[in-house]
Amino acid sequence: MPDSAKAKPHIKPSKLKTDMAVDLIGVNKWYGDFHVLRDINLKVKGGERIVICGPSGSGKSTMIRCINRLEEHQQGQIIVDGVELTNDLKKIDEVRREVGMVFQHFNLFPHLTVLENCTLAPLWVRKIPKREAEEIAMYYLTRVKIPDQALKYPGQLSGGQQQRVAIARALCMSPKIMLFDEPTSALDPEMVKEVLDTMVGLADDGMTMLCVTHEMGFARQVADLIIFMDAGQIIESNVPEEFFNHPQHERTKLFLSQILH
């Protein structure tokens, strides 16, 4: 995106209030008796891109869903841009306003058009005027390369297009942090690239990102840090180079040998 700065004169980039975007300190979580997150410690600075990988059921989704409180943690602290997540609904709303999320299954609102999907939260949560919300939405829809689909319903789009709408929808709230939970794993192979390209563009713009993904090419290209999880804990974290070339833990080696073929 060479001239993205020029193309968005009225769109204010959101800055984090603190250096530390996300801070997880000794986080534990249980589903009933099942200890799903075990002593998670993770610090994400503003502008960092974190890729999280690990076998199915290792707790990756659960961890990033705790960051915008779609899941509740029982022990430890989660601080998002200086706001600690507790039962305080105001704090939760504050965090959700600043954190965008993209899901594996898009979770677009099927009864609203693409444009309405994108303007809904800005209108009702940020309370910005309709015209402006639509301008912002069209700007981001252009960025994810589907401005011409704005008046269609999500059901009329391909999977890759839907996921790009979902990204645009999250961006319309001008989030400071973006969470991605396996955004490409429900897509047909030829649509994966268009979504990954969008995410790379976002990373190049300096967005703070936490991505659960098994797209290792993407991880190599944009990640500042790769985190490997298993059995509810962080097993290993390292910069991509080291992580792929010199994995330390046996579990990591096994995992990499399985997915890199």
Binding site: L70, D93, R97, M101, H105, F109, H111, L120, A121, W124
Partner: peptide, 24 residues
């Protein structure tokens, strides 16, 4: 996923119900 999508974009409970869940 509809509830989660609505919460993730920052809608409160009543907005989520009124704008997303009940219409569907």
């Amino acid at each position: 996923g509809q509830f989660e999508g609505a919460m993730a974009v920052g809608l409160g409970y009543s907005q989520m119900m009124r704008l997303i869940i009940l219409p569907q």
